[in-house]
């Protein structure tokens, strides 16, 4: 029984090694090429409509907290998050203002008043587009596996670091769409966003962004 357990442990170890071994760091040249392609794609993205799944991971919980909804982005900087399950809530970021509809209760927040919150929201918009290659703000490293490119953005900004210490963006290998955004806190708790059924560059009416 003991031998069987040890063999099983070895097997699990080998499998996990094999899985991590699949992800490898890109060379400097390949990293630069990927960055250029993503920036170019981002420039040509005028809108994104996508379903999303959000997972909030807190170390002490038994399960991650899952919520789902719909995201609408329109260039240059209008974005709407509509949560549908398990609560109804929408947030629109437009012209440095945040418009909230909390299951019928409407309010708005001027983001000019809070620099950190505003820069975090800017970053979230950039992360959805994939365009956050700012080497003054982030220590950036590039990886690839069989299905996707994975880019780590470690924050170099002390104020941002208190909220999010690292963004990890996962890009579809074929079309370079951002398919996952992971925001890791310094405590290592994180929020993971998965994007599904993405539609790029469809016509989006401005009326979508009215509260």
């Amino acid at each position: 029984m003991q031998i069987r357990n040890r063999l099983l442990a070895l097997f699990v170890l080998l499998i996990s090694f094999a899985i991590t071994a699949q992800e490898r760091e890109l060379s400097v040249t390949a990293s630069a090429e990927l960055k250029n392609r993503v920036v170019e794609k981002s420039k040509n993205t005028s809108s994104i409509i996508s379903d999303f799944e959000q997972y909030k991971h807190l170390d002490f919980l038994s399960n991650d907290i899952k919520s789902t909804g719909k995201l609408t982005y329109k260039s240059p900087s209008s974005i709407k998050w509509e949560y549908k399950v398990p609560f109804v809530y929408s947030a629109i970021f437009k012209n440095n203002k945040l418009y909230i509809n909390d299951d019928g209760v409407k309010s708005n927040i001027n983001l000019d008043a809070n620099k950190t919150f505003r820069s975090l929201n800017d970053l979230i918009i950039k992360s959805v587009r994939g365009d956050m290659f700012d080497e003054e703000k982030f220590d950036i490293s590039y990886f690839v596996n069989s299905e996707a490119y994975i880019v780590h953005f470690k924050s170099l900004d002390a104020a941002l670091n208190k909220l999010i210490s690292e963004f990890v963006l996962t890009f579809d290998k074929e079309n370079l769409n951002v398919i996952q955004v992971k925001m890791i806190e310094s405590s290592e708790d994180f929020t993971l966003l998965k994007f599904l059924n993405q539609k790029i560059n469809q016509t989006v009416s401005d009326a979508v962004f009215t509260n």
Partner: peptide, 17 residues
């Protein structure tokens, strides 16, 4: 967490603590 020990976290809907 255990007897007489609770943890409580408040986040925004987006998950920011």
């Amino acid at each position: 967490i255990k007897t007489n020990h609770h943890r409580m976290v408040f986040t925004t809907e987006f998950g920011n603590k």
